[in-house]
Computed example of a mutant assay.
Amino acid sequence: MSIPPSYGPPQEPQGPQGQQPAPQGQVPCPPPQSTYGGRPGFAPYGLYGPYGPRPPAVVNGVAVAALVFGVLFLVPAVGLVLGLVALRQIKRRGERGRGMAVAGTVLSSLGLALWAAALASGVLTDVWEGIEDGTRGNSVLALGKGDCFDSPGGLEGWATDADLVPCAREHDGEVFAVVTLPDGRYPGDDSLAGTADERCYGLRDDYVMDSWALPGHVDVYHLVPSSESWRHGDREIVCVLGDRDARSPLTGSLRRDGTTLDEHQLAYLEAARVLDTALDGAPEAEFVEDDLPGYREWADEVAAALTEQTRMLRAHEWPAGAEQPVSGLVAELDEAEEEWAKAAGAGDADTYHEHSDRGWNLVDPDGSVTARKALGLAASPPRYDEEAEREPESGDMKV
């Protein structure tokens, strides 16, 4: 190993130990220089091996990726796989990054364990629902069945915002159905209004099965797409219950379906709907004399509905407090069925009136009040102000 010269005054040049200085007039050979610029005989650490100089080992890229995935916990399974692959590559290629690969593998394994625990406990479901709720915002396009909301502009005209509020508080409207329309060209305002009127009124009784619980001042409104929202993919008609005076609020939910009623209430209302549906199918002719065959056919349908209603009422096992009132109601409905059957076979208008009038009296709503009270249903027959009926098209709201 060469020894560097000492500092101090110049000394006589000397040759290597045991040798004489080079004769005068000859130039001595320069000492060997380091390839990397170091002093003679020295080389930077790590750059020399048994076979000479070599570049530093590179860092394995897969190990870096494994560490990133492990730290982020986003897809821990990927981080675990990458970590194992990186360890194998590092061992085979002699690359650096083993510590990162190990750390990524450990963190990813921990992440998998935490994800499994979260799935088992339902935490992730709650988090995702919270994210969905947070992204819904206050757009009318986010309204869903059962939502109660305030609309800054009321329930008529144009609307873009809807502030969700608890149904127990005052609110402008309550969504009872959402109808999805097929793709295609914009149907036009009149067509949408007609579709909304037909579909929403048809779905109202599914949400409010007990029509007696629906106040007479409440009516149906429609939230329909505008031509602008249609171009952006809006295909929903939102059916809303609101006060006839669109500026007056509602308080409390109007929902009366399987989510709010017990099994006995549902059984009674489902049986009552059979008769209500038949009674709603009266002929268009105002007078029996103008369409006796049509009225006789309708009377036959009413008689069949009464037979089905009494069958359903008899088949259900009622609680002790309601068994007797329901049995009394069934007896009246049996008599009503006989009168409507006779009306269906009437040979003239007078005979038809005689039996249908008796049939109407036997299905009078007041006759079911006792049974309704026993079942905990609304017990005051609805009273509607016909003069307050609003034209269907005035209930349209556009997005």
Rank of each mutant, 00 (worst) to 15 (best):
V238G: 04
D234E: 09
P249V: 14
L261T: 12
L254P: 08
L223A: 06
E228Q: 13
A267Q: 04
T259P: 07
E236N: 12
D257W: 03
S229D: 11
P249F: 03
P225V: 02
I237T: 14
L250F: 00
L223D: 13
D262G: 11
G242L: 00
Y221C: 03
L250R: 10
D257V: 09
E236M: 12
S248H: 10
H232A: 13
R255C: 13
T251C: 10
R235M: 04
R255S: 11
T259E: 14
H264A: 15
Y268S: 09
G258T: 06
I237C: 12
H264Q: 07
S227K: 08
H232Y: 09
A267Y: 05
G242M: 00
L241C: 03
V238E: 00
R244F: 05
Q265F: 07
V224M: 04
G233V: 01
G252A: 12
E228G: 14
V240L: 15
V224K: 00
W230M: 04
V240I: 14
G252E: 11
R244Q: 12
S226G: 11
R255V: 14
Y268F: 15
H232W: 11
R247M: 04
Y221F: 13
A246C: 01
S248I: 06
T251N: 15
L261H: 07
P249I: 15
S253G: 15
A267T: 02
G258N: 05
S226C: 09
Y221K: 02
R231T: 12
H222L: 08
Y221T: 15
S226Y: 14
Q265S: 06
W230I: 00
L250A: 01
H222C: 08
T259D: 07
D243T: 01
